[in-house]
């Protein structure tokens, strides 16, 4: 018991975490993962109740059902948002401040066009539907994951080009 209370009262971990450097990509991944986790937990509970004809169903609670729909909308919005962000990063330009040969657009760094990621999407979709079935609610994970890869790729391109820390 003494050992347990020591391990709880110890704030070494907290001090270490406070010094940790936050970053844009880390925060984006965290927020997307939180959304997907919420969808997974609520969706699993509702489907579990439906499959087993449970008398107590999470879908009976209107606020959690509403949260599920709202989070799904946000995550699906992230997918389109990531594609638009990627396009705007690739099309953006920085005016050279000196004659050191700064490139005026990030297009040269864009080695992963959207169509290539679309190919991966299609390939994964086939495998996914063979394992989890078609029209599965889990499809949101696949599309969001690919949207996240697109978003991070765009950010890496932009940060490399603008000379920022790639985090």
């Amino acid at each position: 018991m003494v050992y347990c209370s020591n391990s709880i009262g110890n704030n070494k971990t907290g001090e270490k975490k406070m010094n940790k450097k936050g970053s844009q990509i880390q925060w984006t991944i965290s927020l997307v993962m939180i959304g997907l986790f919420t969808i997974a937990i609520i969706g699993f509970a509702i489907n579990f109740a439906a499959d087993n004809s449970s008398p107590v169903d999470l879908a009976d609670d209107p606020e959690l059902s509403g949260l599920n729909i709202d989070t799904k909308t946000n995550i699906e919005g992230f997918d389109t948002g990531a594609e638009n962000t990627y396009a705007s990063i690739v099309n953006s330009s920085i005016s050279p401040t000196s004659s050191s040969g700064t490139t005026a657009t990030a297009g040269q760094f864009a080695i992963t066009p959207v169509n290539v990621i679309g190919t991966v999407n299609n390939i994964l979709k086939v495998g996914w539907s063979k394992i989890f079935g078609s029209d599965s609610g889990f499809e949101i994970f696949l599309t969001t994951f690919l949207g996240m890869i697109l978003f991070i790729t765009g950010l890496y391109i932009w940060k490399t080009w603008a000379g920022r820390s790639p985090d």
């Binding site: 927020l31 993962m33 986790f37 609520i42 008398p55 107590v56 169903d57 999470l58 609670d61 959690l64």
Partner: peptide, 28 residues
């Protein structure tokens, strides 16, 4: 939740919300 009378909807909701909050803590 698969048997009537074992757990109430209020407790199930609290457990689901605590799980979601723990997930938020984990990912942050």
């Amino acid at each position: 939740a698969t048997i009537t009378g074992i757990i109430q909807i209020a407790w199930l909701v609290i457990v689901a919300v605590v799980t979601i909050f723990c997930g938020i803590w984990l990912f942050i």
